[in-house]
Write a protein that binds this DNA or RNA. Structure first.
Length: 519
RNA sequence: CGCGGGAUGGAGAAGUCAGGUAUCUCGUCAGGCUCAUAACCUGAAGACCGUAGGUUCAAAUCCUACUCCCGCAACCA
C-alpha cells in the first residue's frame, strides 16, 4: 500500500494558495500512483485545537467547537471544488483521534518517556505565552507589545526527545531518501545537532489552554500541538483499532510519504515526529519519507496575512476554472523549490499548453477524422519513417513522464507529455492530411496519419488524467472510448483505438481563457 | 564567522550532486500553412550562466574569496 498524507491545515483562517498547492500535489501523486497500478490511501484533514483557535473564537464570541466547524467546512468545500479526493479525513477533535492520542500518552508515560518538570521563565500575560531570548529587542528587553512580563514558574510535562536524537541523527545520516528533495537534509541535521540534549514540552496547564486533548494521567493539563496534530497520521488509519477506521497493518505496510511545507520540516516533522515514532517502536523500515515542498511567493516575497498579498484559491478556481488552477500549481513550480505566483502565467500556461497545443491537437485531429474518414479510425497502409518516429516519441516521452512522476516532479512529467504533443503537431504539419484528402489514391496514407494522431490523443488523455481527471474524461468521450480512463500505465501500448472504431465530433476541451487579468 | 535557499538571453525557469558544442516556455522579428480553439509549423535575433581568482585539455557545473536577493517571531503550505 502506498500511504500518502499532507500536513493538516490549521483552522484559524481561510485556505490560501499554499494549502491548495499541497493538496493538489498530493491528489496528483495519488492519482498517478493508482494509474501506475498501486493501491493508494490518501489522508488529509485539519488541525483544530490550540491557543490561536481558542483566542479567535473568543474574539468572535462563539465556542471553539463552533468556530472550528465553520472554518473546517471552508477547507472541505475547497477540496471538493478543485477536485481533491481523499480516502481519509482527519479532524483532530474527532473522538477516535482523541482516544488514540490519549492511549499513546498513557503508554509513553507508563514507560517514563513522559515526565513532569518545573520551568522558570518570562511570561507575557497579554500574549499568554512564555518568551524566549528571541523575543527580546536589541537592547535585551522585552518590548511593549508583550505588555506586562513577569518571571514565573510553571510545571509541565516533557517528552524524552533526547532519548531518541542519537538514533535519529544516525538514521538521517545514512538515509538518502528520507528527506526529499535531498538538499533539505543538511538543514535538518544541523538543527538536530543543536538539540541533542533537549526534551520537548508537550503540555499546557488548563488555566492557560482548555481547547485541547486532556492528558489522561493529569487532568489539569492538555497536550500541546505535537502530540495532538502529528499523531493524526496514525490515529486516522487505525493505530488504535476502531471499526470505522482502516486496518493499520494494511495501510502502514512500508514507508508512507508525508507531504509537508518547508516550514514544518524543522523541527516538527524532521525531529519530533520521527522521535515520537521511534519511541512508539516503529522500525527504520517503517519511518515515513518527507516530501518537502516550497512556497508560492508573491513578487519574490513570502505570502502572508500581514503583507496583505494572500491569494484565495477558491476565487481563482471560479475565475479561471479548476483545471487551469490545478495545472498551473503543479506545472509552474519544481517540487521542493519556491515559485512566484503570477495569474498571467496561469492563463498563459493554460492557453498555450492546454488550449493551443493539446486541446487544439485533439480538436484538429478528430475533426479531420470526422470530415475525411466519416470518423472511422483504421490503421491504413504501410508505416513510414515519420510514423515510427512518432510512435518512438510516444514511447520515449511516456518513459520520461513516468520517471519524472515517480520522482514527484510533476512539472517535468508534463513537459514530457507536451513534447509528444508538439511532435504530433509537427507531424501533422509535415504529413498534411488535408492535402492527402484531396486525392482518393492517398486514402490509406490518410488513414494512417489520422490514426497516429488519434492514437496519440488517447495516450495523452491517460497521461494527463492524474493532473486533470475531468479533462481526461472529456478527451476519452471525444474519442468515444470511455474505458480509456480505466487503463493503467502498463496498458499504454500502441493500438488503444481498435480498428474501425468510430469517434465523436470534437469540441474544444480547453477553451482559451480570454479573461483580462486584473492589476 | 548563526542556519538554509537563490543569482542562467527582455520575463519565468531547467541544467550544478556524477565537468565536455547553453535547454525549455513566454515575449520580439521574419516567413509558411489553412485540418483546427485568430490555433499550428519553420526560421532568426537575443546570455561571455552575479563578481574576482584558481583547478583542468575542457567549468553554468569543481575549489577559494566576495557582492546582492529571499526565508529562519507571529499569521503560515
Amino acid at each position: 500500500m502506498f500511504f500518502l498524507t499532507t500536513a493538516i491545515d490549521y483552522t484559524n483562517g481561510s485556505p490560501h494558495i499554499g494549502h491548495a498547492y499541497e493538496k493538489i500535489l498530493a491528489d496528483v501523486i495519488t492519482r498517478y500512483r493508482r494509474l501506475a497500478g498501486e493501491e493508494v490511501y490518501f489522508l488529509t484533514g485539519v488541525d483544530q485545537h490550540g491557543q490561536k483557535v481558542q483566542q479567535t473564537a473568543e474574539k468572535e464570541g462563539i465556542s471553539p467547537a463552533q468556530y472550528v466547524k465553520t472554518v473546517t467546512a471552508r477547507f472541505s468545500a475547497l477540496w471538493k471544488k478543485i477536485g481533491v479526493e481523499y480516502d481519509g479525513w482527519a479532524e483532530t477533535t474527532d473522538l477516535r483521534h482523541i482516544t488514540c492520542v490519549q492511549s499513546i500518552l498513557s503508554d509513553l508515560h507508563s514507560r517514563d518517556q513522559i515526565y513532569k518538570k518545573t520551568y522558570r521563565g518570562f511570561y507575557s500575560v497579554r500574549q499568554e505565552q512564555f518568551l524566549t531570548d528571541r523575543d527580546r529587542d536589541e537592547a535585551g528587553n522585552f518590548g511593549t507589545e508583550w505588555g506586562e512580563v513577569t518571571e514565573i514558574e510553571e510545571e509541565n510535562y516533557y517528552f524524552k526527545l533526547s532519548d531518541h536524537t542519537p538514533w535519529l541523527r544516525e538514521f538521517l545520516q545514512k538515509s538518502d531518501d528520507t528527506i526529499l528533495p535531498a538538499f533539505r537534509k543538511s538543514e535538518l541535521i544541523n538543527a538536530l545537532e543543536k538539540n541533542l540534549g533537549v526534551d520537548l514540552c508537550i503540555s499546557r496547564p488548563k488555566e492557560r489552554l482548555t481547547w485541547g486533548i486532556e492528558l489522561p494521567f493529569d487532568t489539569d493539563f492538555v497536550t500541546y500541538v505535537w502530540f495532538d496534530a502529528l499523531i493524526n497520521y496514525i490515529s486516522f488509519v487505525g493505530y488504535t483499532p476502531d471499526p470505522t477506521l482502516p486496518d493499520f497493518e494494511s495501510i502502514w505496510t512500508d514507508r508512507p510519504v508525508h507531504i509537508i511545507g518547508k516550514d514544518i520540516l524543522v523541527p516538527a516533522h524532521g525531529i519530533y515526529w520521527f522521535a515520537m515514532l521511534h519511541a512508539l517502536g516503529f522500525s527504520d523500515e517503517k519511518m515515513p519519507q518527507l516530501l518537502v515542498h516550497g512556497w508560492w511567493n508573491r513578487s519574490g516575497e513570502k505570502m502572508s496575512k500581514s503583507l496583505g498579498n494572500i491569494i484565495d484559491p477558491a476565487e481563482l478556481a471560479d475565475t479561471f476554472g479548476s483545471d487551469a488552477l490545478r495545472y498551473y500549481l503543479v506545472r509552474d513550480i519544481h517540487t521542493g523549490k519556491d515559485s512566484n505566483f503570477d495569474a498571467e502565467r496561469l492563463v498563459m500556461l493554460f492557453n498555450t499548453e492546454l488550449a493551443n497545443e493539446l486541446g487544439n491537437l485533439c480538436n484538429r485531429a478528430l475533426n479531420m477524422s470526422v470530415r475525411f474518414t466519416e470518423g472511422v479510425i483504421t490503421p491504413g497502409g504501410l508505416l513510414t519513417a515519420d510514423d515510427t518516429a512518432l510512435q518512438q516519441s510516444l514511447i520515449d516521452n511516456t518513459a520520461a513522464y513516468r520517471k519524472a512522476m515517480d520522482n514527484h516532479e510533476i512539472s517535468m512529467g508534463l513537459e514530457a507529455l507536451n513534447r509528444h504533443v508538439v511532435h504530433c503537431n509537427q507531424y501533422a504539419e509535415r504529413m498534411k492530411p488535408w492535402e492527402l484528402n484531396k486525392n482518393v489514391e492517398n486514402k490509406n496514407r490518410l488513414a494512417t496519419v489520422l490514426q497516429h494522431l488519434a492514437e496519440s490523443v488517447a495516450h495523452c488523455a491517460v497521461l494527463l488524467s492524474p493532473i486533470l481527471p475531468d479533462a481526461a474524461v472529456k478527451l476519452a468521450a471525444q474519442l468515444n472510448l470511455a474505458k480509456l480512463t480505466d487503463l493503467k500505465l502498463d496498458d499504454l501500448k500502441w493500438g488503444l483505438i481498435p480498428n474501425g472504431h468510430e469517434i465523436e465530433k470534437p469540441f474544444p476541451v480547453f477553451p482559451r481563457i480570454e479573461v483580462k487579468v486584473a492589476e
